[in-house]
């Protein structure tokens, strides 16, 4: 049985791929958990961040990992402005309108990217692109190991911000009780925008960690956005540990279903898990009852 021989390496691969999914989902779960909006623009923001990383590398020779301190704050600001200047203003706080606005924003970003940067698929080559770590049972590509560690660190950082800072407390208060938060003097619009900014910053971190092992094109967001939603629901909306665990579970599920059902049909496993979680435990693995 071929499948059995490569079972262990396949699980390891699933874990590293899953860590990338978790990274992308972390920002989404924050936005989803606090603002209760399905952010259709998440994928296109990921794409935009990947282009930023690409051009920093291609133009200035900055290594994608060293680009983190530039790209992450930049995208935090972008996210803040996007929520405050566009999404909040255009949607009048109504769910269906937020949906359309984020959809519109994603159409704009994606097609401007096509116009300015053409639709070519671009990759970067770093000294470690083809390097692997030999774990005895499997070779794991270095960028994937880094992404795995990065996912853990970003989760920890988010957890720290949310539980140890005033900002985090305000965000949590807002997520639980909008009216109450307003009454105790929390600047709701500001905190909403901060949440969106942090969520966007997370996606920028994901872009830095992802690009060395992937590619970027104007449509690359679509590759990950559905998976990210799956992870968010699986882990529980607004739960960072949930997103991490959810990402890893989805990664391993995808890997094993691919192994046993074929890479084509195997994708179905992700969505069946997704549906099952929605039906039987809609709060997700680590979510709280709303």
């Amino acid at each position: 049985m071929v499948e059995f021989q490569i079972l262990l390496p396949a699980i390891l691969n699933g874990l590293t791929t899953g860590a990338v999914y978790a990274l992308i989902a972390l920002g989404l779960t924050l936005i989803y958990g606090v603002l209760h909006i399905i952010n259709f623009a998440h994928g296109s923001l990921l794409m935009l961040a990947m282009y930023a990383v690409f051009f920093l590398h291609a133009g200035l020779g900055i290594d994608p990992y060293l680009a983190l301190p530039v790209v992450v704050p930049g995208f935090f600001a972008l996210g803040y402005l996007l929520q405050r200047g566009v999404i909040a203003r255009a949607s009048h706080g109504r769910d269906e309108n937020i949906l359309l606005v984020t959809l519109g924003v994603s159409i704009v970003i994606e097609n401007l990217a096509r116009y300015f940067w053409r639709s070519d698929t671009r990759t970067i080559e770093t000294p470690y692109s083809f390097e692997t770590v030999d774990l005895g049972v499997a070779f794991i590509a270095v960028p994937k190991v880094v992404a795995f560690a990065g996912a853990l660190l970003v989760t920890l950082a988010l957890w720290w911000v949310m539980s140890r800072t005033d900002l985090g407390r305000a965000i949590r208060a807002l997520a639980k009780e909008r009216q109450g938060a307003r009454l105790v003097g929390i600047d709701v619009d500001h905190i909403f925008a901060m949440s969106f900014g942090i969520g966007t910053a997370c996606v920028a971190a994901a872009a830095c960690l992802l690009l060395p092992s992937f590619y970027v094109s104007p449509g690359v967001g679509h590759t990950f956005v559905l998976i990210a939603f799956t992870v968010v629901v699986l882990g529980g909306m607004g739960s960072f540990a949930g997103a991490l665990i959810g990402g890893l579970i989805i990664g391993v599920t995808e890997s094993l279903c691919g192994l046993y059902l074929g890479e084509s049909l195997g994708q179905i496993g992700i969505f069946l898990i997704f549906i099952a979680i929605l039906l039987f435990r809609p709060t997700g693995l680590l979510g709280h009852r709303a």
């Binding site: 490569i6 791929t17 995808e254 890479e263 084509s264």
Partner: peptide, 21 residues
């Protein structure tokens, strides 16, 4: 014969199968 989705985000499984066989 291995069929894969578009997009496929990770090819390690496929390559591992190739290596094994």
């Amino acid at each position: 014969t291995i069929s894969h989705a578009n997009p496929t985000r990770d090819f390690n499984n496929i390559v591992l199968k190739i290596r094994a066989q």
